[in-house]
């Protein structure tokens, strides 16, 4: 797994790694990818992918609106809030 790929995965995942962890992860990912290639030995031609093992259909909910929560309780566990907003470092308006 090359540096560029690791960098790309880290960006997509919003993670970073110090040099030591990065080397360890690279070795692990190489090993894991080597290991999952055992899948290639199975012929899956004409096999449909399976997302859930139990054959169930998606249930639907009636369109009823309820208010069953308290914003203050939600925001009491948030790192940073003001006037009911969650706050994040300033995002510069792109336009």
């Amino acid at each position: 797994m090359d540096d560029e790929t690791i960098e790309r995965l880290l960006t997509l995942s919003q993670l970073s790694l110090d040099i030591e962890d990065r080397e360890k992860i690279r070795r692990d990912l190489d090993a894991i990818i080597g290991f999952i290639e055992i899948m290639d030995q199975v012929n899956t031609e004409e096999v449909e992918p399976l997302a859930h093992a139990v054959d169930l259909d998606q249930p639907l909910r009636k369109d009823r609106a309820v208010i069953d929560f308290d914003r203050d309780v939600f925001q009491s566990i948030a790192p940073k809030t003001a006037d009911g907003f969650y706050l994040v470092p300033k995002v510069l308006d792109q336009n």
Partner: peptide, 30 residues
């Protein structure tokens, strides 16, 4: 956790999805 996130991101990425994610779902069915 980081290792699994990175593995998962890899297998869902453009170019790897079919070989990893879809293949795995097919094996799941078998």
């Amino acid at each position: 956790v980081k290792r699994r996130i990175l593995t998962g991101t890899y297998s869902l990425s453009v170019g790897y999805f079919d070989a990893y994610y879809l293949k795995a779902q097919k094996i799941r069915r078998l």
